[in-house]
Each structure stands twice: as C-alpha cells, then as structure tokens.
Design a binder for these strands. Sequence first.
DNA 1: CGGGTGACTTTAC
DNA 2: CGTAAAGCCACCC
Length: 120
Amino acid sequence: MASENKKNLAKKTDSQKEDFFQKVFKIVAEIPYGKITTYGEIAQAIGLKSSARMVGWALNSTIGDSSLPCHRVINRNGELTGKRHFRTPTLMREMLENEGIEFIGEAVNLKKHLWKPPID
DNA sequence: CGGGTGACTTTAC
DNA sequence: CGTAAAGCCACCC
C-alpha cells in the first residue's frame, strides 16, 4: 500500500526536522548588532541553499519570540519582505534603523551591513 | 500519494 | 521599473 510508504516519507525522522529549525534559530540568533543577512545565505549555511523559502517558513515560528532578531533577516534585494508578518509593518524598519542600518529607499544597504553566517 | 501554499531566488521579456 | 514562470523544500489537508 502506498499509504504505508507515505508514513515513512512524511515522518523522516523526528529529530531531523527539528535540526532544521535549530540551525535557522542558531544562525539568526548569531547575527551581530547592526548587521543583516539574507534568506539565501542562511539557507546555504543550513544546507538548503536552493530553498530560501524554508528559512522564511522557519522564521514564521519566531513570531512572538523577541529573543530572536528576525528583523535582521531580509531578502536578496535588501527589501524587508517579512515586515508584513510583524506586529506592525513599520516595526521592522524602525528596529533596523535603530541599530544603525543604512537604508537606500525601501531597502537596506547590503554592501555595508551584510553578514554571512558561518557554514558549519 | 497528490495538490496547495509560502518572510525566496533567478531568469526572461 | 513591472509581471510571469520555474525551481526549490517542508508543512498541511
């Protein structure tokens, strides 16, 4: 039966999927003050370099968790794509500006503040 | 298993 | 500048 197969595939290994979250959390938590990084860089550090989407998805679980600087994670263009998931759409930019992040229009100055996570 | 969705990225027009 | 499409992986139903 195919259904039996599905169980094995969907389940994978309970520990494995948590590892994905742990990596994202760890990296984001390591972003230094006044720096930012991109979904792509994090995805690459985790090993899912082709799926920056998963980083944002994992970050969704951080909503309400003030101990994680999710406002320092932006997209490849420096735009605050995740701002709409914050309590207020302006909060993300305000937090970054408060840390000394330089903005160019609606995007941050990647060249100046981009921080690349260590690839473990 | 299969279809839908998403805080992304890249290429193409 | 803009929109479209494909690729990507994990979650949910």
